[in-house]
């Protein structure tokens, strides 16, 4: 690991100023569960860390207003157990509780979690210590070096949204839930404050997989807002290799508005199967205005994977993912009040 300077910023303005002064080798630090981990692996090699966790007021959770508002530094565990979230928006709470162990939920922030990096083993473990390319090529880690996952051990990789340059799966659960709930991301940077819908936050890998977020490096996430939707019933359904504390093989965030047994609207997003948090509009279209049955739910699940491109070892995710959507739709519908 390179020597690093460590500073604590007291305000947003001070953080951005410190970052701009430090240049390209600077990184903002919040919980550190991704960044420090990747520093140990040689994937991230910052020279300057600017700790944001001392900035006052950036961890506030507000549920009384027109929207749910989560300060970027709010801990995953604190948001998950906030009564209004836990009881009223199970898709949000469950996505956080299923995302990490309780220890990590006490460290990781809901803002930092949006920037979690892929768990592709070639990305994580291929950096080496002396080579610039690394033990394994990886276009995400080293642009233009190639992709060891394509044709390699790709059981955990994406079947949706992949390119010839990268098939690494987006690892998050919370961003998937936020995608289904039309969240907005609030940012602050050298140019001031701005907001973008979460649907515009993530970039498909295309031929530039090293660029994952539509955010300037000097910009900070300051808050996440979620529209209040009391009429929706929701769930975050996640299938893993083991029952707890594992990344998704396939997951679905589903929020439905029901009229008796008829689906008025459905919001469906997928995790574990795509290169970005994946909105499954074909599945939503299939159930809208219809009476929900297990057969229709599975048909909708299948529609989400039309056009999927499996690799060598991950074709099972198309069937698994369809069934996860189907089960999630039925679970959410049963929760309608």
């Amino acid at each position: 690991m390179r020597p690093i300077s460590y500073t604590r910023a007291g305000t947003l303005e001070a953080a951005v100023k410190a970052f701009t002064a430090a240049g390209a080798d600077a990184r903002y630090l919040a919980g550190g569960t991704t960044l420090y981990d990747l520093m140990k692996l040689g994937v991230e090699r910052p020279a300057h860390l600017i700790d944001l966790t001392g900035i006052a007021g950036l961890n506030i959770i507000e549920t009384d207003g027109d929207v749910l508002r989560f300060g970027a530094l709010a801990l995953m565990g604190d948001v998950a157990y906030t009564p209004a979230v836990h009881e009223g928006y199970p898709v949000l709470s469950e996505s956080l509780l299923k995302a990490a162990s309780q220890q990590l939920r006490n460290m990781a922030t809901v803002g930092g979690n949006l920037l979690q990096r892929t768990r592709c083993m070639y990305f994580r473990n291929g950096a080496g210590s002396t080579s610039t390319v690394g033990v394994y090529p990886c276009n995400r880690r080293q642009p233009g070096s190639g992709c060891a996952a394509i044709g390699g051990l790709d059981r955990g990789h994406a079947v949706l949204g992949a390119s010839d340059a990268c098939t690494a799966v987006s690892p998050g659960d919370w961003p998937v839930a936020l995608m289904a709930m039309d969240a907005t991301i609030e940012l602050f940077g050298p140019g001031g404050a701005r907001s973008i819908p979460i649907a515009e936050f993530y970039r498909l890998p295309s031929d530039t997989p090293h660029l994952q977020f539509n955010v300037d490096p000097a910009e900070l996430i300051t808050a996440i807002t979620v529209p209040k939707t009391p009429g929706r019933a929701s769930t975050y359904h996640k299938i893993r290799d083991r029952e707890s504390f594992a990344f998704a093989l396939a997951s679905a965030a589903v929020a439905v508005e029901m009229d008796g047994a008829t689906v008025r609207t459905a919001r469906i997003a997928l995790g574990g199967v795509a290169t970005v948090p994946w909105r499954a509009q074909p599945a939503e279209d299939m159930v809208r205005g219809k009476t929900l049955t297990p057969e229709l739910a599975l048909e909708a699940g299948r529609a989400a994977f039309r056009g999927a491109r499996p690799g060598q070892h991950n074709a099972f995710k198309m069937d698994l993912g369809a069934r996860v959507i189907a089960d999630a739709l039925m679970i959410a519908a049963e929760r309608r009040s």
Binding site: Y6, G32, Y36, D37, T53, S101, Q103, M107
Partner: peptide, 21 residues
């Protein structure tokens, strides 16, 4: 989880906690 300690009374993994923090 072998490195679990309590920081301000809450469990965290000390391996991913930068000491400076």
């Amino acid at each position: 989880g072998a490195c679990t300690i309590h920081l301000d009374g809450r469990p965290v993994v000390s391996c991913l906690t930068l000491a400076a923090k």
